[in-house]
Design a protein around this nucleic acid. Structure first.
Length: 282
DNA sequence: CTTGGGACCTGTGAGC
DNA sequence: TGCTCACAGGTCCCAA
């Protein structure tokens, strides 16, 4: 799925099309994604104006003018597609934009049709009151934002010391740090020169410093590149991110390490592939 | 409490 | 060409 840089890129891409815009029509083309939509989902969204678009971890938060918040997670394959509409006052009226397969939610504003498309349907949406946001079961346990002030070496070290997991699993744990996924964990560990299989509790303070700095560096670079486009990820207007051209290890098994030239290794940790350089990462 | 494995889905590409 | 299998950016849920 979209990890933090991709979700933030989606947020930025949707903002000019949704901020201060009214949802003229809302269509749910099926009753659920990963979870059922909340009751009267489409009706409760229809006619509302989006006041603000936020992101928390890999969640997109659309604040509405009646203090509801639309919570959207893209799962593995979710994406938003914006199709600008011609002048809405044009006569005769332009025909509706036909939905494509796997377009599950269609929002229309005066200026655009915005489809949420998700073939695997691992994504989900919820609609809650803004005061319930902090206590929402899916958000309450999330750890600090990796690019925020609450994420620092001391925090990471504390969490590492009381863990019996390998570093890879520690960083994928959204309660430790919120927003990393398989790509950016692999890349961050490479840049910190740390082996993904290292027991987390063996981390030293110097290594924790290196790792927090690496995470920040990698995420910042990925954001600047508009995220990574593999397989099916695209931004709202169809644009591709280009960070995938910068991968040092992710999806590079067998290819030479950019630092030492050794072939990148691929192992499986808790069911997920991890790529790393066995020489550079210890 | 933590941890690991299975489950949830569809699409794609490799290999036969 | 057509089939089967492995694998894919996530995370919830359950058993141990």
């Amino acid at each position: 799925m979209p990890e933090l840089p991709e979700v933030e890129t989606v947020r930025r891409g949707l903002e000019p099309w949704l901020a201060q815009e009214t949802l003229v029509t809302v269509t749910a083309r099926r009753p659920d994604l990963r979870f059922p939509f909340p009751t009267r989902f489409a009706e409760r969204l229809t006619g509302r104006t989006v006041t603000r678009l936020d992101r928390r971890a890999k969640y997109l938060l659309l604040h509405l003018d009646d203090h509801q918040v639309l919570l959207s997670h893209l799962g593995m394959s979710g994406k938003y597609r914006v199709t600008p509409r011609p002048d809405p006052d044009l006569q005769p009226p332009v025909p509706a934009i036909p939905p494509q397969p796997h377009d599950h939610i269609i929002l229309t504003t005066r200026r655009a049709s915005i489809a949420y498309h998700d073939p695997r349907r691992f994504g989900f949406m919820d609609l809650i009151h803004s005061e319930a946001l902090a206590s929402h079961p899916l958000l309450a346990a999330l750890g600090p934002e990796p690019l925020g002030n609450h994420f620092h070496a001391g925090h990471l070290l504390t969490r590492a010391q009381r863990s019996r997991s390998p570093l890879k699993a520690l960083l994928l744990d959204q309660k430790v740090v919120a927003g990393l996924g398989n790509i950016y964990v692999a890349e961050s560990l490479f840049h910190a020169r740390l082996h993904p299989d290292r027991p987390a509790h063996t981390l030293t303070i110097e290594e924790a410093e290196r790792l927090t700095a690496a995470i920040r560096t990698v995420l910042t670079a990925a954001l600047a590149a508009g995220g990574s486009s593999l397989r099916d990820y695209q931004g709202p207007s169809g644009e591709f991110g280009c960070f995938q051209h910068t991968f040092a290890v992710y999806d590079r098994a067998g290819q030479p390490c950019t630092v030492c030239g050794t072939a990148i290794q691929r192992i499986v940790q808790s069911g997920r592939a991890t790529c790393f350089c066995a020489v550079c990462q210890r």
